[in-house]
Amino acid sequence: MVWALHPRVYESKDWATLIFILALALIVIARTAFSSRFNDYIRLLVSDKYTKIYRDSSHLWNGFNILLFLVNLVSFSFFIQLVLDHYGLGEKKDWMLFTRIFTGLTVFILSKFLIEKIIAVTFDIEELIDEFNLQKVNFRTYIGLLLFPVSAIMYYGDYATNSLIIIIIGTLLLINLLTYLFYLKIYQNFVIGKLFYFILYLCALEIAPYYFIYYLITKN
């Protein structure tokens, strides 16, 4: 009798846990490497100290923002997948679906940023758009931090309901609206001088892309 020996392979199938841990590690790195900045950042919604200190557009793609941007991508990708799962349009445990959402979201944001830069240079409003993008990054990565534990709880606890999803989406839209109002308050003199181009920018790159995404999702 011949005994066939096969090596036992231990493989974690919980890919979501690994990604959540990696995202948490990024937050810890940001907190450790930029402790003073992080402490100011977490008070972003109640204090304007952070925006006053780091208002220069050179801060847009530094290490701190890149770390939080990656966390933001993870948070929103999971939330989108949970919403799709709740409405029967996907499966929350499908790692391939998460990969597609994460990749699509990354390409969308970076492509939108590149187009914005081209338009800003064309219409000579580069300074305005760079500072506006910095404010958007600040607030939207902040939203990603808030959404991170919510997505984790919803993923493992099956707490997703119509009411909860609507409340979360409504809160996200409200914070985005506050971002625009906050920016207009700070740079109102500069914006008024180039009001036509700024409105054109908002319609073309801040409203139209999301409308078309919504249209394609509901249409499909």
Rank of each mutant, 00 (worst) to 15 (best):
V28T: 11
V28D: 05
V28M: 14
R31P: 15
R31L: 15
A33E: 08
A33M: 09
A33K: 07
R37A: 04
N39S: 14
N39F: 09
D40E: 05
Y41F: 10
I42P: 01
I42H: 14
L44A: 08
L45Y: 07
L45I: 14
V46I: 14
S47F: 05
S47M: 10
S47D: 13
D48M: 08
K49F: 05
K49C: 13
K49L: 04
T51R: 02
T51C: 01
K52A: 09
K52Y: 15
I53F: 06
R55P: 00
R55L: 01
S58F: 14
S58H: 10
H59V: 09
H59N: 15
L60R: 01
N62M: 07
N62R: 14
F64A: 00
F64W: 08
N65P: 02
I66W: 05
L68E: 11
F69H: 09
L70I: 05
V71L: 07
N72C: 11
N72H: 13
L73V: 03
S75V: 00
S75W: 09
F79V: 02
F79L: 03
I80H: 05
Q81D: 03
L82R: 05
V83C: 10
L84C: 03
D85L: 03
D85G: 07
D85I: 00
H86S: 15
Y87D: 07
G88P: 00
L89I: 06
L89N: 09
G90T: 04
E91V: 12
D94C: 07
W95K: 04
M96V: 09
L97V: 06
L97Y: 11
L97Q: 10
F98N: 06
F98Q: 11
T99N: 10
T99Q: 15
T99E: 11
R100A: 08
I101K: 05
F102W: 11
T103M: 03
G104I: 02
T106N: 04
V107W: 02
L110E: 12
K112D: 04
F113P: 01
L114C: 07
I115D: 13
I115Y: 05
E116I: 15
E116F: 03
E116V: 08
E116N: 04
E116G: 00
I119N: 13
I119A: 14
A120I: 01
V121R: 13
T122M: 03
F123V: 05
F123W: 10
D124Y: 13
I125S: 04
